[in-house]
């Protein structure tokens, strides 16, 4: 069987690099700019994750199927994030073209209803 695993020497080097990156990310937290800060923090975290995946998790010896499986989860996550945020990032202009006031007032209406008819929302009512 192919016993391809990372040598202990490489393990120690990677661990060293991970610690350096940890220090870097704490220092980078001093960046006052919110957006830049998050980009740097995520970049460093991604590099750390890649080091762990490639060396500790022996993906550099893996075949293409395994590599595909490694990528699959992250690709799926990017799809989720990108399309979900496409909603949040573009909700502002919705105001201007006047979306349904019913939707926007729904929680308020619900609370008002609860004040008027507390019994309808009291726990314990049942069929």
């Amino acid at each position: 069987m192919a016993a391809h695993v990372t040598s202990s020497r490489s393990c120690y080097i990677v661990f060293g690099a991970l610690l350096v990156l940890l220090v870097l990310t704490v220092i980078a937290a001093g960046i006052e700019n919110h957006t830049l800060g998050i980009i740097v923090a995520l970049l460093i975290a991604t590099v750390k994750a890649l080091l762990i995946i490639v060396y500790f998790m022996n993906v550099r010896f893996a075949d293409w199927v395994t590599r595909l499986a490694v990528a699959a989860g992250f690709v799926g996550l990017i799809v989720l994030l990108a399309f979900m945020m496409s909603d949040y990032l573009t909700r502002d202009p919705v105001d201007e073209i006047e979306t349904s006031p019913v939707t926007r007032a729904a929680p308020e209406a619900f609370e008002a209803l609860a004040l008027l008819h507390p019994e309808a929302f009291a726990p314990g009512i049942s069929v």
Binding site: T25, I31, H34, I44, I52, F56, M57
Partner: peptide
């Protein structure tokens, strides 16, 4: 089981800056 452990480590690698280090 090592793969599983490393994965849990990676989750923390992202959680740490995202929760603790926000400016």
């Amino acid at each position: 089981s090592g793969l599983y452990w490393h994965f849990v480590d990676i989750v923390w690698v992202f959680l740490f800056p995202l929760l603790y280090l926000i400016r």
